[in-house]
Structure formats: structure tokens, C-alpha cells
């Protein structure tokens, strides 16, 4: 495993825990897109179907279990425990606009026309765009709380670090995964605007506000 990937995975874990911590301590899901979290939950479940059929390492299995359980817990907190605080009125992005294209693309572009591989490809494509409802919500409300900004930064950094990992693996191992790389680049590009605002505002101690 490359250092870039380890850093990426840790950034991913940090993002997930930051979000759970924010919702749990403030007892509020305000400013968080339930739709994005619901789609991330779908991403983990459809990707890690291989949890019991293909063993990679204790590290891999542990992370998979962690991602699935933390994601289910997040969705539970938003839609059940702290449902009253969830800002559904501002969470208006239509999930079918990304789920349907991701499914169609997975049926066309996959490594084998089997249930497991189509499910895996669907998961990769959906992950690339699952953040859209959250970014849409930040744009619509015009701002994000600092901890939400840190969450988005850690989540965006994760796939960016994976890109460095893929470059490293291509040169040193000849490893090349076109589906993951293409989706990973799209995913990272979607965070572009946010990264800019994060560096120019949040890092300087200001709240993240989207200009009208």
C-alpha cells in the first residue's frame, strides 16, 4: 500500500468521524445533506458486497466494516434520531439525477457483466457524484459551518490523495484501474470550487460563505 493511499484512507475516516462527531455533539443535522449521506451509504453497501467473498487484508476488511457501519449510523442520526433538525427544505437535489446515470454507466462500462462487477462500477460512479446534494445545499443556503467545511475538505482530500496513489502504482506496479481513475478525477474536480473557498476563507478564520 502506498503512503498516498494510507493518507487518503485516513482522511476518509477522519471525514466520516468528523461528521458523526458534529451531528452527535450538537444533536443537530442542520446544514447536512441527508441525500448525500444516503447515497454514500448506497456506495459502501454496493461496493463492499465482496466483504465475505474476497479477503484482501485485515486492514481492508476493518475499513469496509467501519465505512458501512459509520455510514448507516450517520443516516440513522439524520433521518431518525435528529430528524427534527434535518434541513430537508434546503436538501432539494434530485437523487435520481445521479443514481440513474451511474447505474446506466455501470451497465455499459464495467470489468465484467456480472452482478458483483456492475454493483462495484455503480458504486464507483455514484461515489464520484454523491457529494452534489451537499454542495448544492451549501450553495443554496450560502454558507457552511466550519466543522462542515472541515468535513468536506477531508472528504475531498481523500480522492485527491488516491489520484497520487494511482500515479505511484501505475509507475511502480503497472497497476491501472481506468474506472476508478476516471471517476476519481471527476470526484476531485467537483470539489475544486470548495477547495478554493476553504483555503481563502476557512483557513483564514472566516466562515465559508458563497458569494451571491
Amino acid at each position: 500500500m502506498t503512503l498516498f493511499r494510507l493518507a487518503g484512507d485516513l482522511s476518509h475516516v477522519l471525514a466520516i468521524l468528523l461528521l458523526l462527531y458534529k451531528i452527535w455533539t450538537t444533536k443537530s443535522a442542520a446544514g447536512i445533506s441527508g441525500k448525500t449521506q444516503l447515497m454514500f451509504c448506497m456506495v459502501y453497501v454496493t461496493r463492499y458486497l465482496d466483504l465475505f467473498t474476497s479477503f484482501i487484508s485485515v486492514y481492508n476488511s476493518t475499513m469496509k466494516v467501519l465505512f458501512i457501519s459509520a455510514s448507516v449510523a450517520t443516516v440513522y442520526l439524520i433521518y431518525f434520531k435528529f430528524k427534527a433538525t434535518y434541513d430537508g427544505n434546503h436538501d432539494t437535489f434530485r437523487m435520481e439525477f445521479v443514481i440513474v446515470p451511474a447505474l446506466i454507466l455501470a451497465l455499459i462500462w464495467n470489468y465484467a457483466f456480472t452482478f458483483f462487477e456492475i454493483s462495484w462500477a455503480f458504486s464507483i460512479f455514484l461515489e464520484a457524484v454523491a457529494i452534489l446534494p451537499q454542495l448544492f445545499m451549501v450553495t443554496k443556503t450560502g454558507e457552511a459551518e466550519n466543522i462542515t467545511s472541515h468535513y468536506l475538505f477531508a472528504l475531498g482530500s481523500y480522492r485527491a490523495l488516491y489520484i497520487l496513489n494511482w500515479i505511484d502504482r501505475y509507475y511502480f506496479e503497472g497497476h491501472w484501474d481506468p474506472i476508478a481513475v476516471t471517476a476519481g478525477i471527476v470526484q476531485t474536480v467537483l470539489y475544486g470550487d470548495f477547495f478554493y473557498l476553504y483555503f481563502t476563507r476557512v483557513i483564514k478564520g472566516r466562515k465559508l460563505q458563497v458569494l451571491p
Binding site: D50, N60, A112, D177
Partner: peptide
């Protein structure tokens, strides 16, 4: 196997 290649990343 069912997989064309092993998905060894997360």
C-alpha cells in the same frame, strides 16, 4: 473467479 481483477483498494 467472478472478478476480472481484484479490487484491492477501498
Amino acid at each position: 473467479g467472478r472478478f476480472v481483477k481484484t479490487h484491492d483498494e477501498l
